[in-house]
Computed example of a mutant assay.
Amino acid sequence: MLNKAILVGRITADPELRHTPSNIAVTSFTVAVNRPYSKNAERQTDFIDIVAWRSTAEFVCRYFHKGNAIAIDGRIQVSNYTDKEGNKRRRFEVLADNVSFVEGKNASAASAAPSESAQPQAGAPVAFESGNMDDFEEIDLGDDLPF
């Protein structure tokens, strides 16, 4: 069996880092993903809930903000629960195993909310699976890109 989700979209709100009672980092955010065009139809967008844990959550909260494009590699998780009115509900979300930058700093700055956090430039290491935040070094390429 295989459960794999690969998404590319834009973050709809600034991710916020939270911690469980046992001090495990977690963040939840929503990504807007465009559907392919259909003939004579408006473009439709799906809003997909994402959950990231531990160092991936810390990475997302440090480098991604509202409007930033993000690539997510993960798996779909389904949860069943009962709402306040006693109705049975089902929730679908993607657990992010790996996140990547999709665009460079200058492209994302136009769509992102102002932030003091610097974002890596194009050409810098752009993916994060697991590891330590100290493994990353920001590289300033300015506007001198090779393409």
Rank of each mutant, 00 (worst) to 15 (best):
V60K: 06
S100D: 13
F101R: 08
Q77M: 11
V33K: 04
S130A: 10
V99R: 03
T27S: 07
D97A: 12
A107L: 13
L95W: 04
Y37D: 07
D49W: 02
I139G: 00
A5D: 05
R35C: 12
A112L: 04
A71V: 05
T12G: 08
R62K: 15
S111K: 10
Q119G: 00
P146I: 02
D135L: 10
E42W: 14
Y63Q: 09
I139L: 02
C61A: 13
D97S: 15
Y37R: 09
I72T: 06
T27D: 02
G74L: 02
T30F: 04
V99M: 07
T56L: 04
A112K: 02
E58Y: 02
A69N: 07
T27N: 02
G123N: 00
A107Y: 15
F59P: 08
S115Y: 05
S115A: 14
N23L: 07
Q121H: 15
F92C: 13
R18P: 07
F128N: 04
P15W: 01
A13S: 14
D143E: 11
A118V: 08
G74R: 03
A113V: 13
I48G: 05
I24H: 11
P114F: 15
N40G: 11
I24K: 15
D83P: 09
A5S: 10
K4Y: 08
K4R: 13
A25H: 04
V102N: 00
A32K: 02
S22G: 03
G123C: 00
D135N: 12
G9A: 05
L2M: 11
A41D: 15
G86E: 05
D83Y: 05
P36F: 06
M133V: 04
E58W: 01
R54S: 15
T20S: 12
E58Q: 14
R35A: 14
N98S: 13
S79K: 13
R91K: 15
Q121D: 14
N80D: 12
N87R: 15
A41K: 14
T20N: 07
D143W: 02
H19A: 09
F47N: 06
N34M: 09
D134T: 09
A118M: 13
V126H: 09
A25M: 00
I70Y: 03
R75L: 05
S111W: 10
F147C: 03
C61M: 09
P146W: 00
S22K: 15
Q121L: 06
A32C: 08
N98V: 14
E16A: 04
I11R: 00
F101S: 04
A69G: 11
D46M: 08
I24W: 04
S22W: 06
S22C: 06
Q119V: 04
G74I: 01
Y81P: 02
D97R: 15
M133I: 06
I11W: 01
P36S: 06
E116N: 09
E85V: 10
A57P: 03
A52S: 06
G67A: 07
A124T: 04
E116L: 10
N106M: 00
D143I: 00
Q119N: 02
S28G: 09
A69L: 10
K66N: 14
G131H: 05
S130H: 10
